[in-house]
Amino acid sequence: MGEDELHARLKAYEGRPAAVGGTGRDPVNAPMIRHWCEAMGDRNPSYTGPDAIAPPTMLQAWIMGGLGGHPGRSRAYEELLALLDEAGCASVVATDCEQEYLRPLRPGDEVSFDTVIESVSGRKTTRLGTGHFVTTRTDVRVGGELVGTHRFRVLKYAPARRPPKERRPRPVVNRDNAGFWEGVGRHRLLVQRCAACAALRFPWLPGCPTCGSPEWDTVEASGEGTVFSYVVMHHPPFPAFDPPYAVALVELAEGVRVVADVVGVPYDEVRVGMPVRLGFRRYDEELVLPVFEGVAG
């Protein structure tokens, strides 16, 4: 199919319904308003008390279909998505939304809605890949009265080919930490110990932060530890990494804390307090890094 023919077929879906006669799964209610405000940190008094209204930006929350999707999605919308899939635009990402509010929603309001395919763009090239923006407009009503409009835009695209994977950044090795990296190369995690007061320290430093002594030796960590804190990285700026992945601050049995990747368990199963065990992973011919593997409870 040529580009002109595809564009004409896509444009033919503009103005056709994407969902008709939809209804909110729940009436507007105080518990959902409270959860929303707590998540957003919004303490506006308008959203509490006997005369409470719902935060305007919750408009979409009352019409979302949940994990089961929208059972009222139209055949026309399904055909449009299938056409884009056939054209190689099988990936999708939400890009933005716009909302207009005509009156506040209040607890007890029962919403209904209709959605129309408002526009389908020509072929666009983005960093993610090449595809088409699809914009839908949802009119939200209460008892037949229009209370708000929600425009939602997605990009259906063919992912761009990724360049060859780059190498991970190299650690900065200097005279103060060279011994640590030499240990890692031998699959040993070495922790500094002050020769004067025996305090353990990590990362490596030229002097003891407890007593100030410049004298030190090392002890080898047992490798046992627990997750003290963690983050899940979704969008790092480095092409050498494969998000999402979990990075943890691990408290070793010796009492010091180390930052490293958590491997061997799904990133979304990492938890504070999870027991982990030291391992070492080779990333290329030069780079070996300590990692921590989740231990089954």
Rank of each mutant, 00 (worst) to 15 (best):
A39R: 10
L84G: 10
A178M: 11
D96W: 09
H187C: 11
D176C: 01
G207I: 03
F202D: 01
F133P: 13
Q99D: 14
A18F: 08
G2V: 07
A39M: 13
M58I: 08
F292R: 11
C208D: 08
P107R: 10
G179N: 09
R161Y: 00
A76I: 02
H70K: 08
V262N: 08
C97D: 10
P290V: 11
L146P: 07
T57S: 09
D109S: 11
A61G: 06
E286C: 01
A160M: 07
C211E: 02
T136L: 05
F292L: 11
G41C: 12
R277L: 08
E98G: 08
R141N: 01
V291T: 12
C211K: 05
R281Y: 07
P236Y: 15
E86D: 13
H150L: 14
H35S: 13
V191N: 03
A260I: 09
Y245P: 03
G183K: 05
L84K: 03
I117W: 03
R170I: 12
A198I: 04
G41F: 10
R106K: 15
L102R: 13
Q60C: 06
R16N: 03
R151W: 05
P17Y: 05
V288W: 02
A260E: 10
T95K: 02
G68F: 00
A19G: 10
R153G: 02
F238G: 07
K165C: 11
Y47V: 00
F238C: 04
L59D: 06
H235W: 11
P203Y: 08
G143M: 04
W62M: 11
D109E: 14
L205S: 09
K156N: 03
P159T: 06
D176Y: 12
G225T: 04
D261W: 13
A178V: 14
T218V: 13
L6Y: 01
V154K: 09
A260N: 10
V262M: 12
F292S: 08
M233T: 15
G183V: 11
R137K: 06
E285N: 09
V92W: 01
F180T: 12
V111W: 12
I53K: 02
L146F: 01
L205G: 01
T126F: 06
P56L: 01
A94E: 06
P31S: 05
G144M: 05
C37H: 12
D114R: 15
D42K: 02
E86L: 01
G122E: 14
G264I: 14
H7K: 09
E286Q: 06
D261L: 15
M32Y: 06
L189W: 13
A199C: 03
T57C: 08
E251N: 01
V263P: 05
L102S: 11
V247N: 03
S91Q: 08
G185S: 13
T218K: 02
